[in-house]
Write a protein that binds this DNA or RNA. Structure first.
Length: 641
RNA sequence: GCCGACGUAGCUCAGCGGUAGAGCAACUGAUUCGUAAUCAGUAGGUCCUCGGUUCAAAUCCGAGCGUCGGCACCA
């Protein structure tokens, strides 16, 4: 005699166990029509499941957030049926939901290509139109294994074998087709609806392990209604519009070419942007008590052996074998060993600690070809790197200082939000548990003092120490890990760094490896996408264009440009024989933030007409006033009075 | 590195066995114009590279390189 409590508090007693569908029908025809699943005491279930005990029941309709998961999960099943109908002999493996959609991995000799998708999607729509109910069946484990083996579904059989003995083995039927699945599902395939789309194909290793066979994955997106699907597709188009590689062409920032895969050719505009970012960082670091150094690119193998990189990082290093001398050098993949060399010059005193050594360190790492991606993943890059040599007691206060620096920098670049991930001791590690206890406590305490919350990444720390990772969120909600702070007990030991303590004894410093931006290349890529090329004035590589309407204004336009340059702006002069509409279009497409238009009127009155990128508003100002305002606006945030 | 797609003028792309094309950009000329494309003309190509098939290859096949989307990797 189950007593059912609904979200509105009402209670209903039934004389016998009943299914969710029956319960919905008992409550009302509207609910019977709209309910696609239910939560029984907080657990999401099929409507076909029987409720035989007192329970709190919440019905799920398409309006609920849970519906997305269900729709995507069921869409994955429909996809699998469609594929197996069209391509007999294809084995199914797994098909989970993901952010924005779902995928299904298939085992097939011939991988799927983009051309296969329209037919598969059409078949999916057929299956959905057929509207076959999802039927849940509980199977005996061994029988299920035999069943799938007999069908030639070896991956499914393997999945069942690996399930814990206690797990109930359930299969779901949709018409003729059946799949191993934990569930829950909606009522029938028709509940998937029509707001879905197959997006792309990709290879993916079975169980994510590169030693396993590669499966053929089909990605799809699915939503509750067409409007949501359209909005998602629109968002993708927006991300495409912001792609830093595309904007780089529009703004003439940089390029890549085959002869230097993974290394950037910075054009004048891009390099100006780079220098602006770097000059800003240099000032911030100086204010924060860092000393800047510069260390060699090419360093003998002996140092990398001593630091441990030769053993642990060899396959990522560019190695140079000298022909004339019997010597092996490597391009540095990191700056830390070189910084320790500077620390080791002379005798260091505890009075010098914390010693904050910064370098805009140009590093090279051999990245696998498939990993390269515009500015975001390159082989040659420059880190805003620094190493803080300090005592164990100073870890906490140095971390607080670092978080403050990072918060300031991110804010200045227009990132309001960031979050922190804390990676603690991994299973295999150097250093005693007591030292790890203290280091982790210091980082944790520092986060509290700095007023930042963190999420824990258990066991994800480096072997040499725990770390914090700083993830910022861009204008369209994507996350980018940029900053990092890593505690290192190992390198000072390996490279024999020491200082003289207050009591005259020799001690090992702790090293904090830290970066705010990560690499300039990647951070600039993020900036480009964050701003979609429409930079605030202080960052814009071309800050203004002075454009003439008639040739009579050429001389005055040159004067305007000269005044703006004198005030420190980077300005181009456009006296081309074009109509002003064409000039507006050209410079708008190049994302120039300020267009200073001058015609006869401005020349006569000593004014300029300012037009901001993306706005049709015009503001006519006296020249000196325009220069004053723009100069102020172009001032980097750290230099404001 | 693995799977798939792609590589044609500076850019965006068409052509898909039979003499390399368009728009924009560039250059020249005309036009002097008030806030997102003025008109006309000219020039511009080892069709990524190397091999193969063919009377004939941008086009078909193979390998390599690169790019893109994923997967793996990111100490």
């Amino acid at each position: 005699m189950p007593l059912i409590t609904l979200p509105d508090g009402s209670q209903h007693r039934f004389v016998a166990p009943l299914t969710g569908a029956a319960l919905a029908a008992a409550i009302g025809p509207g609910l019977a029509r709209d309910a696609i699943a239910m939560k029984v005491d907080g657990v999401l279930m099929d409507l076909s499941r029987e409720i035989d005990h007192d329970a709190h029941v919440v019905f799920i309709t398409r309006k609920d957030p849970e519906a997305l998961e269900l729709i995507r999960h069921d869409a994955a099943h429909v996809l699998a049926e469609a594929v197996q109908t069209l391509y007999p002999g294809t084995q199914v493996t797994i098909g989970p939901t993901i952010e924005n959609g779902f995928y299904y991995d298939f085992a097939r000799n011939e991988p799927f290509t983009l051309e296969d998708l329209p037919a598969i999607e059409a078949k999916m729509r057929e299956i959905i139109a057929r509207n076959a109910p999802f039927v849940r069946e509980v199977w005996d484990r061994d029988e299920a294994i035999r069943f799938f083996e007999a069908k030639g579904e070896h991956y499914k059989a393997e999945i069942i074998r690996d399930l814990p003995e206690t797990e109930v083995i359930t299969l779901y039927r949709q018409g003729e087709w059946v799949d191993l699945c934990r569930g829950p599902h909606m009522r029938s395939t028709g509940d998937v609806g029509t707001a879905f789309k197959l997006m792309k194909v990709a290879g993916a290793y079975w169980r994510g392990d590169h030693r396993n066979p590669m499966l053929s994955r089909i990605y799809g997106t699915a939503w509750r209604n067409q409007a949501e699907l359209d909005a998602y597709l629109h968002m993708l188009a927006e991300a495409e519009r912001r792609d830093h590689r595309r904007i780089a062409r529009e703004m003439d920032l940089f390029h890549f070419q085959e002869e230097a895969a993974g290394s950037v050719f910075w054009h004048a505009n891009g390099w100006r942007l780079y220098r602006t970012v770097q000059a800003y960082m240099r000032r911030r670091l100086e204010q924060a008590g860092y000393q800047e150094v510069h260390t060699p690119q090419l360093v003998d193998r002996a140092l990398w052996e001593a630091s441990g990189h030769w053993e642990k990082f060899r396959e990522h290093m560019f190695v140079v074998q000298l022909e004339n001398e019997n010597r092996t050098l490597a391009l540095k993949p990191m700056n830390c060993p070189c910084h320790v060399q500077i620390f080791r010059q002379g005798v260091r005193s505890y009075r010098e600690l914390p010693l904050r050594m910064a370098e805009f360190g140009s590093c090279h790492r051999f990245e696998p070809s498939g990993a390269l991606h515009g500015l975001m993943r390159v082989r040659g890059f420059t880190q805003d790197d620094a190493h803080i040599f300090c005592t164990e007691e100073q870890i906490s206060s140095e971390t607080v200082r670092f978080v403050e620096l990072l918060r300031t920098v991110y804010r200045d670049f227009g990132f309001a939000e960031f979050r922190v991930k804390f990676s603690d001791r991994p299973p295999v590690r150097a250093g005693s548990d007591a030292v790890w206890d203290r280091a982790e406590a210091a980082l944790s305490e520092a986060c509290t003092l700095a007023g930042v919350d963190y999420t824990l990444n258990p066991g994800e720390g480096a072997f040499y120490g725990p770390k914090l990772e700083f993830v910022l969120r861009d204008a369209i909600g994507r996350d980018w890990q940029c900053g990092t702070l890593q505690v290192d007990f190992v390198l000072p030991e390996r490279l024999d760094a020491e200082y003289v303590a207050e009591d005259g004894s020799r001690r090992r410093p702790v090293m904090l490896h830290r970066a705010v931006l990560g690499s300039f290349e990647r951070f600039i890529g993020i900036l480009i996408e964050h701003y979609a090329g429409r930079f605030p004035l202080w960052l814009a590589p071309v800050q203004a264009v002075v454009a003439t309407i008639v040739a009579d204004a050429d001389a005055y336009a040159a004067e305007v440009a000269a005044q703006l340059r004198k005030a420190g702006l980077f300005v181009l002069l456009d006296t081309a024989n074009e109509k002003i509409t064409a000039k507006v279009r050209t410079h708008s497409l190049a994302h120039v933030p300020v267009l200073a238009v001058v015609g006869r009127k401005e020349a006569e009155n000593g004014t300029v007409s300012l037009r901001r990128l993306g706005s049709e508003r015009q503001e006519v100002l006296a020249l000196e006033e325009a220069v004053r305002r723009l100069a102020k606006e172009a001032c980097p945030p750290d230099l404001h009075a």
